[in-house]
Simulated assay, not measured.
Amino acid sequence: MDSRMSGSVFHQVVQPEGWPAPRGYANAIVATGRLLSIGGQIGMTPAGEMQEGFVTQCQQALRNIEALLKAADALPEHVVRMTWYVTDIATYTAQLRPLGQVYRTVMGRHYPAMSLVQVVRLVEPAALVEIEATAVIP
């Protein structure tokens, strides 16, 4: 197993030799510390207002994750895994540039292991995205 250190000593990004470098995610991460599991966050503000539009909902979901991390004395770079559920992959791929900007604004340049899944619908009918996160706090 060939691995490279990623910004912090508490986790390592694992990248097999010869694999192409991923962009915007990691294939695997090894981590040690306290586990924080964050349930799916949607584009709704703490006041219960659903944001309009895909990128804006993603930004709010990431901000919700950021608030939960802070409440647990964790940082965005402690996130080791994210699963994104979207109702339309075509919308996701059409918005990669602004979505990347929003992601970096909230999460920085830390890219955990990620999965993206298209679903028929989310529990909240107006939700276009739901993001789960797992963090390991040193």
Rank of each mutant, 00 (worst) to 15 (best):
T32C: 09
E17N: 08
T105Q: 10
L68E: 12
V136W: 04
G18S: 09
T56N: 09
I89C: 02
V55H: 04
I131H: 06
V120N: 06
Q101G: 15
Q41M: 13
E49W: 00
G18R: 03
A133N: 08
I65W: 06
L68Q: 14
V80K: 04
Q101S: 15
V14E: 08
L99Y: 14
P76T: 08
Q118W: 11
V79W: 04
T56C: 07
V30M: 07
L99C: 08
M107N: 00
I65V: 06
M107H: 03
P98Y: 10
R121Q: 13
G43F: 01
Q59R: 15
V136M: 04
V86W: 01
I38M: 02
T134V: 11
A67L: 10
R81K: 12
V123Q: 14
A113E: 05
E49D: 08
M114S: 12
G24W: 07
E66H: 08
P16T: 11
G108T: 00
R97F: 10
A126D: 03
V30Y: 13
P112F: 11
L35S: 06
N27C: 07
L36A: 01
V13F: 03
L116S: 05
E77G: 05
V117M: 08
R23Q: 14
V123L: 15
Q41P: 01
K70I: 02
V80A: 02
Y85I: 08
T91F: 01
R121L: 09
A94W: 03
I29F: 01
M44A: 03
V13A: 04
T93E: 14
R23G: 09
V55G: 00
P46F: 00
Q59N: 15
W19G: 11
P125S: 05
M82K: 07
V106I: 05
E49I: 00
L99G: 11
A67E: 12
G39M: 14
Q95P: 01
V14N: 11
A67D: 14
Y92N: 09
E49M: 00
T56P: 02
